[in-house]
Write a protein that binds this DNA or RNA. Structure first.
Lengths: 239, 239
DNA sequence: GCAAAAGTGTTGATGTTACACCCATGA
DNA sequence: TCATGGGTGTAACATCAACACTTTTGC
């Protein structure tokens, strides 16, 4: 099934073997300086010119949906290894103005530092937005974004996925601030420390914070292997 | 987009305005006599003749995905009001042998008594299966079923959806057995009673069980309105 | 009276919350 | 020496798990 059509976002003519009525849209989250941020793309051409949108694209005939999402994220952000999960399909009849297109929503969690190394877009095309700065997006992208947020909030409490948003080495306060920002709640520092440390999921490094104007905090690393091991034994992560 | 093709399941020629590369498949759960059951359909024609499958179908051009799922369930079970939720899209390139088709998985919870009233299929075509009696299904339907089970297990703990599987009036033991069966765990009767009753989500009826050879249990009803009200106040259901 | 399930009470263990407090460091 | 965040201690309170026990009903 080889088709030729104009890609809404890039304005280029696409002549590829892709599935026609289905797209992928992805909410890419990161955490920077206490804020949860989302990567948005500004459409350069087509009927949505100038408007902001979630990054997305088409699915090729020979690849799975997950592979397509991985590829699209690689094309957009340059990142190969990231946390990626499908949300669900969005398919109101009127969601896309030029025809009946169903989109499959994904969300990804990345470390901001990973993104900065090699971005596929210019600063004007792709931009990180704080949640409160996001206005009206094209099509039903606000709905997808809201769904992804609800999903993220529910999941971050019950699976240790929050670590994907932080640098490899982080302090307990950074981790706590991440939970506070994502869940929109205030946490008690002493109690949070104990709760997290009791899980034995963090490797306490010898290193400490540098260049801070207060007592330097110990740096920690998430212990994937130990989490796998504990999970097999019946351990359930919960914040 | 009007297409003509042969429907795999019924063997009939379809000449309708439907979306080509996308189907819907639905896991319909019910609870009967202590067992969680799933409704399966035996394909009468096509390459899958004689094999069991999840009920499903095509999405029409003018309906949303949720509407399509509702319609397909109505066509299969005759039930209009049921608990229905989308799982996610399944789309491995090789999942459907006759072409690249992505399917959107749904799951529904119904009261068995509702189904018995008017079924759209004969007993030979459509049958309730206990989980342990389900063998190999067509395509990737086992994968969809397993995903739906995981999802159901996670969700039933954190939202009062289990009541959709029970009769309108039920005893606390029935409710407990439902949780035991779905979650695959043993529960302590006294503690379960207290936990559930403390939530104030059940209306204690004046009626009692009939025709039982032991002390008759009080019947209860789920209080939707109260759940809504409590939820707005911040209440979180958790078993 | 016996079996079977309904339903109540109690207790120790565990977990959670709130908050007081000391420690280390740069400016 | 002060501000800032790092990090520890603790007592009150809420929740949970385990299990002994009483009640009701049909046979």
């Amino acid at each position: 099934m080889v088709k030729q059509f104009i890609d809404e976002e890039s304005g280029k003519i696409i002549e590829k073997s892709v599935i026609n009525a289905i797209t992928i849209d992805c909410v890419i989250f990161t955490f920077d300086n206490g804020n949860l941020e989302v990567l948005l793309i500004q459409h350069a051409n087509g009927i949505s010119k100038g408007k902001w949108a979630l990054p997305g694209g088409w699915i090729k005939e020979e690849e799975s949906i997950d592979e397509a999402a991985q590829r699209l994220l690689r094309e957009t952000t340059g990142i190969k290894d990231l946390y990626l999960e499908q949300l669900k399909a969005f398919g109101e009849p009127g969601r896309f103005p030029l025809g009946r297109v169903i989109t499959i929503g994904y969300y990804a969690l990345i470390k901001k530092s990973d993104f900065d190394i090699k971005a596929g877009f210019t600063a004007a095309d792709a931009k990180w937005f704080k949640l409160k700065d996001i206005g009206n997006l094209i099509y039903d992208h606000n709905e997808i974004l809201n769904f992804s947020l609800e999903h993220l909030r529910a999941k971050v409490k019950r699976a240790p996925i929050g670590f994907n948003l932080l640098p490899e080495k982080f302090t307990l306060l950074q981790l706590m601030q991440l939970y506070q920002e994502v869940l929109g709640i205030q946490l008690d520092k002493p109690n949070f420390r104990r709760k997290i440390l009791k899980m034995k999921l963090l490797i306490a490094l010898e290193e400490k914070e540098m260049n801070v104007s207060h007592r330097a905090a110990k740096l920690y690393q998430f212990d994937h292997d130990r989490y796998e091991m504990l999970t097999r034994k019946g351990f359930i992560f919960e914040v």
